[in-house]
Amino acid sequence: MEAFFQTYGFLLVYMCLQALLGLSTYLPLMAGQLSLASSGFYAIGGYVAAILSTQVFHTSGAYPIGYLLLETLLAGLLSGVVAVVVGIPALRLRGIYLALATIAMVEILRVVSLNLSITGGAVGIFGIAQPFSSPLGYMWLVGPLLLLVMFFAYRLEGSRIGRAFIALREDELAADAMGINPTYHKVLAFALGAMLAGVVGAISAHFLNTWNARQGTFDVSIAVLAYVLIGGSRSFAGPVLGGMVLTALPEVLRPLKDLRFIVDGLLLMLAAIYLPQGLANPNWLARRKTAPVREKT
């Protein structure tokens, strides 16, 4: 057991971080907004943590958790503010056009970070201080965060604002005619996803020990989108499952050597074909809900 955690500690934490990124893309999707901006906010969050921990908070020994939490808070806030500023014009666009606009945002952020000195240019920022003595130590932070965010998403789905999101996803025009303000709720969903991605970025910067312009790229956006699509976009369980499975899969297949990339790709294709609703399909659960006859009130 000990050996297992030693070997796979990094992977386990990484799986949770990717599940969280999946949730950050799921939140805007809940309101019907296909955004690929998560990786951009992830990059912003990472730079906030990297800059603060290397240039502002001078410490020696193990990095204080309090500072890390402060970084995640600031990273989340900054990402949220950027999301509102970008979101108000961008969310007028729909479907594929919104996706393209968010890709453009991610690219702009990448180029900016490559050219600023505060972000370390092409080299980036390295030697980011470690709050834990081993990769698995991050589980103390990432595990509870994942559970909290899952709880948040679950409760949101059944609450007034979550219902407004889902109504917009189902039929924006009908939702509008039912008194739901489309812009407000779309920007809110986008900003919630952005804040989460920023927080994940801040933790990841410490976890990966280094942060540079290769962290929040278009590739990451696509990978995260795959978590949601393969996992399922109709309930919070989808992106969590998708993020974990897709992150673990290449490791699990490692014994296959070079063949694993082919098998990995094949499995993804099969999942997309045979489980178009994703691995977590709420209809399977919904059947249970229809059964009991509800008392009239």
Binding site: S159, I161, R163, G179, I180
Partner: peptide, 15 residues
């Protein structure tokens, strides 16, 4: 869903 305008629960209160 159509009760939206007659209710006011925000994100945090709801969650």
């Amino acid at each position: 869903i159509a009760h939206h305008i007659h209710t006011k629960t925000g994100v945090w209160a709801g969650v």
